[in-house]
């Protein structure tokens, strides 16, 4: 099954993907990237590869394949 991958160096901490994921597979973290934004993590067990995160993210963090 396709799964989402995240390049969190591009993340700007907006959490729109957290809101969009139908499986609640995207976990908001307090961990920051080198730009100082709080990033996210994907629970690969829950992910169904639907691509909603890709469509929602303004900063091209996600690839689903």
């Amino acid at each position: 099954m396709a799964k989402a991958k995240a390049n969190t160096e591009l993340c700007k901490g907006c959490r729109l993907c957290v809101r969009a994921c139908p499986r609640h597979a995207i976990i908001p973290l307090e961990l920051v990237n080198k730009n100082g934004y709080e990033i996210i993590e994907i629970d690969q067990e829950l992910c169904i590869g639907c691509g909603m995160c890709y469509k929602t993210c303004p900063d091209n963090v996600f690839t689903v394949e």
């Binding site: 591009l10 700007k12 901490g13 907006c14 959490r15 729109l16 934004y37 929602t56 993210c57 303004p58 900063d59 091209n60």
Partner: peptide
């Protein structure tokens, strides 16, 4: 390249 937009800005989408 990444855009200079603020986090959560619609311009990126």
């Amino acid at each position: 390249a990444p855009s200079g937009c603020c986090g959560g800005c619609g311009h990126g989408i």
